[in-house]
Design a binder for these strands. Structure first.
Length: 481
RNA sequence: CGGGGCGUAGCGCAGCCCGGUUAACGCGCCUGCUUUGGGAGCAGGAGAUCGCAGGUUCGAAUCCUGCCGCCCCGACCA
């Protein structure tokens, strides 16, 4: 039994994560260091994330497009801060077609540059604005330290790139998309993220201001789960992206960019998982319910499978993503454990005793053992009841994660407490008036960084825990992935 | 790039110090029968150029030299 379980999270969180993602068949390592293969189950999860986000993008007026993977090296160099930020992690193509290229090509680490190159052609007048485009793509960043989903050399994401006539409009868009991300994370992924602004040293290379949704993982570390940037006119100036105003003057456009990546999959895993494996929020789960039939004799098998088919039909009609595991290669106990490892929110057991009563057994993944199990669910009501259960599981996961987060954010007023809180793996909420240099020093000393300056501020003024100066903002410090 | 660990069957590993039969064990896989309400049992079977390259030796998974790769912890980052 013990060799079939997974390393407990309390014992070795990284070990737990690595085991769970592989045993749940979400992912496997690629042959090149830092690359991953997203397996069908992991990809199905990502597809639901995509659907949830894409729908919201469309609802807020965005369109999808696709820009090339290869970017001329000179493009990256045009924006000073941008090139400085990305240079160390660029993958360059120097040879192609059997010979050395005159100019190396960058495999996109992000697409601000190539998109501005195109925007500068497409945008002539204020009538062309705003431009609201998103692309779903892969990008490459040669990271030193990689972890499946959380940080890999190549990853999948979406990147929205918008251009506006005024800074106010662009700023509004930046916050709109931050809220879209927060809405998705909270309502679909059941991850209680904290939306906030990045500190100066944590912001995106090339942005005027960066915003983030920060999530607390099961080990207390923070995960930046999505970012939205106000780019100002930085890239517009570098690429000469101008428009003619109503007054007949030329002005640079004001821009935003925003992204969520396959890292979100890692966030889902580390927010909800337990020592039995994954726990997936119903809205994102590839399979929301699995039916496990149980039988002894061939005769029972016939009547059980008949009922399985009926129940599966009823669930599908009710809009539930369900599958039946009628294989007789494994016994029911094995299947129970398997689907718990894979995080399927609802398990439905149907055996001879249930057939007799014309009822089934429901078991919810988020409440292990008897507590989450209910016998005698009338087969005629499975659709309605399953829908209710899934909805309850969805909200319970959010509630539990929210409580965990709130229990692990500690208000801190001095450095001693700060150290203790950070060492304990919690988040420190503090008044802060420090400089970039002081922030770096804290990181060096304690490993903690400013995760964000929450949008939701208490107001008023306080005393900076570090400098003792008067502070106007409260920030969250934590160790991060 | 620093610190630690590891490379032996598809997976997990023993053997290595102290060289010597046919490289052990568990899981998985194949065949058959019995099983099936929380990771089934019995019987039989297939599967390994011991990370790579040199060297020492009558003989190397084991000792020596060099190389490669991966994982974990840190510095850099979505």
């Amino acid at each position: 039994m013990s060799d079939q379980g997974v390393t407990p999270r309390s014992e070795d969180y990284a070990g737990w994560y690595n085991e769970v993602i592989r045993r749940a068949k979400l992912v496997d390592y690629g042959p090149v260091k830092g690359t991953m293969v997203i397996r069908p189950y992991g990809y199905a999860l990502w597809e639901h994330i995509k659907e949830g986000l894409d729908r919201r993008f469309k609802e807020t007026g965005h369109e999808n497009a696709y820009f090339p993977l290869f970017i001329p090296y000179s493009f990256i160099q045009k924006e000073a801060e941008h090139v400085e930020g990305f240079s160390p992690e660029l993958a360059l193509v120097t040879h192609a077609g059997g010979k050395e290229l005159e100019e190396p090509l960058v495999v996109r680490p992000t697409s601000e540059t190539i998109i501005n190159h195109m925007y500068s052609k497409w945008i002539q007048s204020y009538r062309d604005l705003p431009v609201l485009i998103n692309q779903w793509a892969n990008v490459v960043r040669w990271e030193l330290r990689t972890r499946p989903f959380l940080r890999t050399s190549e990853f999948l994401w979406q990147e929205g790139h918008t251009a506006h006539a005024t800074p106010e409009e662009a700023q509004e868009e930046t916050i709109r998309m931050l809220n879209v991300y927060a809405d998705f994370a909270i309502n679909d992924a059941a991850i209680p993220v904290v939306p906030g602004r990045k500190s100066n040293i944590e912001k995106f290379a090339g942005a005027v201001a960066s915003y983030t949704i920060e999530a607390m993982m099961g080990d207390g570390k923070a995960l930046q789960s999505g970012t939205s940037h106000f780019l100002g006119q930085n890239f517009a100036k570098a690429f000469d992206t101008k428009f003619l105003t109503t007054e007949g003057t030329h002005e640079y456009v004001w821009q935003t960019s925003w992204g969520v990546s396959t890292r979100m999959v890692g966030g889902v895993i580390m927010t909800h998982g337990d020592d039995k494996g994954l726990i997936l929020p119903p809205k994102l789960a590839p399979d929301q319910a699995v039916i496990v039939p149980i039988w002894k004799s061939e005769e029972q098998k016939g009547s059980v499978l008949e009922m399985v088919a009926k129940v599966e039909r009823a669930l599908k009609d009710a809009g539930v993503r369900v599958k039946s595991d009628t294989s007789d290669q494994e016994n029911p106990g094995w299947k129970f454990n398997e689907y718990e490892m894979r995080g399927v929110p609802l398990r439905i057991e149907i055996g001879p005793k249930d057939v007799e009563k014309d009822a089934v057994v429901f078991a919810r993944r988020d409440r292990p053992g008897k507590e989450g199990k209910e016998f005698g669910i009338p087969s005629g009501d499975v659709g309605r009841i399953a829908t209710e259960w899934l909805s309850d599981i969805q909200s319970s996961l959010l509630e539990r994660a929210t409580k965990f987060r709130d229990d692990n954010i500690v208000d801190v007023e001095n450095m001693d407490t700060f150290r203790q809180v950070i060492a304990a793996g919690q988040w420190a909420r503090t008044w802060w008036a420090g400089t970039d240099e002081q922030e770096r020093k804290i990181k060096e000393d304690t490993g903690a960084t400013v995760r964000c300056i929450p949008m939701d501020q208490p107001g008023g003024k306080g005393t900076c825990f570090s400098t003792g100066e008067e502070a106007e903002e409260v920030v969250l410090f934590a160790k991060a992935y």
